[in-house]
């Protein structure tokens, strides 16, 4: 059962470097979106407004998916996983 969930988790985790990619992914597949963030609450709010996704967390296992914030294009400070929530 764990493996089945793990497989789904992998299938439903996507990388977004731009808001276009972010919106397209979440609207077609839901799931987790991995994207870089500048650290500002304005961008966090805007992402929520545009996509309905909240920041889930800044994972302990960090990744570097791009140099710039997915929302504003400024220098990225954190790797964040986003998703619509229950």
């Amino acid at each position: 059962m764990f493996e089945l969930c793990k497989k789904r988790l992998e299938e439903k985790t996507f990388i977004a470097k731009t808001m276009e990619e972010f919106e397209k992914q979440i609207n077609t597949n839901q799931g987790y979106i991995k994207a870089m963030w500048c650290g500002s609450e304005e961008c966090e709010d805007k992402i929520k407004e545009l996509t309905g996704a909240h920041s889930r967390c800044m994972p302990f296992e960090e990744e570097h998916v791009s140099d710039t914030c997915v929302c504003c294009g400024k220098e990225a400070k954190h790797f964040v996983v986003w998703g619509r929530q229950y």
Binding site: Q30, W37, H54, P59, V81
Partner: peptide
């Protein structure tokens, strides 16, 4: 998925909130 909440999403009054997140069958975070 284990990690740290952003300041906006952390618990009211906390310095840091750590979380475990799961993904539902329909692809939402829980």
């Amino acid at each position: 998925l284990k990690g740290r909440k952003t300041p906006k999403e952390k618990f009211a009054g906390a310095e840091e909130t750590y979380t475990i997140e799961t993904l539902t069958r329909d692809g939402r975070a829980l």
